[in-house]
Design a protein around this nucleic acid. Structure first.
Lengths: 354, 354
DNA sequence: CTACAGTGTGGGAGCGCTCCCACAGCTGGG
DNA sequence: CCCAGCTGTGGGAGCGCTCCCACACTGTAG
């Protein structure tokens, strides 16, 4: 454990303190022998610059290690070159675990090419929600990405009326006016239920998320659709209302089991609910998948570690993040216009629980 | 340049369309009947303002809905009122799953009181690392939080020489010159191993993380210490070198089993490694915990869902995030001064695997 | 020859703040 | 009485950019 090799240079604040005075555009202009305007044009890629002026400027920039001052630019353009990713903290707990990081990772990957900054804003209570409103009203970001939307969330409405470019992960309902990206929840659910039916299940139940979220509705819709396509009547007793959490999954599963002991398959709208359900089923002496087959949704790490490993619907979360960022950048640069929607395909990952 | 976005002059020319033209400090001053200087003093909490002037200004601010323009302030103070959280993307995969979100959540909670912004910077390759260096050199944040540090990571050295306030999660080694926060890894490991010994294990093995990370070293150290305290000789054959990943855990466990079939306990330096190890053990016909007791580290969701549920060492990750933010704010405001270190206690969560 | 469009360029103005200097009013000591 | 020494205050200067106008210079048409 030797002392790590440090650059010797900064341990003594005395001598080498040249780093302080950052070169300005003016200095670049002087060194290149041109005016400020020309340097600015070069930096911003204007075509109205002669080849030799451009080259002189680029050389000077390199030599001085010049980096434009963002604040100065923002002050005059009132662009901030940054976007905010807004995450309601309450929701954070509901997410399939890598969800949050994967979204971030996708967004950040897409932004890496740009010189946009990513601001992270967690909102955990009303006070912070108000602060956020003030913040956004004050035009301090060029665009907003919102993760997780409840039907009655006031934020999207605010964004809409402020006309700030924004993209949602998920949507509030069918007629969402803002741009959004989401996974094909209905399709994934349908796929899962068809898989159960094909396996021979005849009494397929479902555990839903909170029905004021469109995701939950969509997954329930897919469940219903698959059953109807297969000629099964939709039976309300087979629907367990839950909330995406493990404990919620346990409770709902117990009720379901009491109400419909003959069920032989469960499609759960989240992996953690499925994990809870599996515990309850096992406690009730049901073997998985022999007596009851179980499918989750999200394909989170939890799915890989349950016993037996869980079959689950995977959504391309990182890709969602990328797409959100891409749509947002488009919207920022193309001066608004059309709202866009993207639906990404889901995929059934078959393991042993079904 | 294309016809750049000008502020549209009003959303709806009629009723409420005042939102567009953001009021400036000058307008506040005019309305309050004072000079710009006084308004600025009020906003920045200077004591040198008479009570009545202060009140007049506050009223005016409220009436106009004034919010200071950050860019203008940054331009003159060269404070940015933002800090960056830097996450090497490669590491992101190694983390116990809620790690990342919990750190963010803690940092963000602590920042909520302030009006500091949180910038998130993922670094996934050399190019982005270089960009980051340029970025930081250009002084575009007031402070930096760094998650996950390898012994040879160049970033901390850069931060040190730039003299940017910064706080690490973890440290590079014993003589880390930067401020840092970390969990009591050694203590947690020691606790875990003592638990195994108390249970009656006599051949306790361990699965380590990559040894160029101080975390891994510390956990190994705790393991070793507990054994020595109990009078057991340290046996290298009982040490499986791995990398924090599930697959790494599997491989190392297999080797360990081949080398020391008589082992009856395993302390794993991460939950996912432990999960992998448990699969291998079960496949080898060992019952958990009867034949081999297993303990993980992190107390991630994985631990709660393995079969049997895993005993694991919990580290207060959110609290680490909070503490990091707090230290960083101190360092920013007190302009340098002492580097600080905080070690947070770990806790053994006993479940069924040991 | 003049006229006139089209390039490329320099540099003034000004974005909204903070900093700081000057100065007005008020003590109170000499 | 004056002159320090306070407090509280107004407003000029200037942070580093972009925007845009004015001004060379071309070249081509009249």
């Amino acid at each position: 454990m030797s002392p790590t090799a440090q650059r010797p240079d900064a341990l003594h604040p005395g001598a080498g303190g040249r780093a302080t005075a950052r070169p300005t555009l003016e200095e670049v202009a002087a060194l290149a022998g041109v005016g400020r305007g020309t340097v600015s044009r070069v930096i911003n890629g204007s075509p109205r610059v002669s080849a030799k002026a451009r080259e002189a400027v680029q050389t000077a920039i390199a030599e001085l290690g010049y980096v434009p001052n963002r604040a100065a630019r923002t002050l005059v353009t009132s662009r901030t070159d940054s976007i905010a990713l807004v995450v309601p903290e309450a929701e954070t707990r509901l997410f399939s675990e890598p969800y949050f990081s994967d979204i971030i990772s996708g967004v950040s990957a897409e932004l890496a090419e740009t010189d946009m900054q990513l601001l992270l804003i967690l909102v955990r209570n009303q006070r912070e929600r108000d602060r956020l409103s003030a913040y956004l009203t004050a035009q301090r970001v060029d665009g907003v990405l919102v993760v997780s939307v409840h039907r009655d969330d006031p934020l999207p409405g605010l964004l809409e009326s402020l006309e700030i470019p924004s993209v949602l992960a998920g949507r509030r309902g069918d007629l969402e006016p803002l741009s959004y990206v989401h996974a094909d929840n209905a399709g994934g659910a349908r796929m899962a239920v068809r898989h159960l039916l094909r396996r021979g299940c005849t009494r397929v139940a479902t555990l839903t998320g909170p029905l004021d979220m469109e995701v939950a509705q969509a997954r329930l819709g897919g469940y219903r659709r698959a059953l109807e396509e297969a000629g099964h009547a939709y039976d309300e007793d087979l629907v367990g209302l839950a909330d995406f959490t493990e404990e919620g999954g346990r409770v709902a599963m117990r009720e379901l089991l009491a109400r419909k002991p003959e069920l032989d398959g469960v499609f759960c709208a989240s992996d953690v609910m499925a994990a809870g359900a599996m515990q309850v089923l096992r406690a009730a002496g049901r073997r998985i998948p022999d007596d009851v087959a179980v499918i989750g949704f999200d394909d989170s790490i939890v799915a890989r570690h349950t016993d037996p490993p869980m079959t689950s619907v995977r959504q391309p979360i990182e890709e969602m993040g990328r797409t959100m960022a891409r749509l947002l950048l488009d919207e920022i640069h193309e001066r608004g216009r059309a709202r866009r929607q993207v639906v990404l395909a889901t995929e059934l990952i078959v393991r042993d629980s079904a």
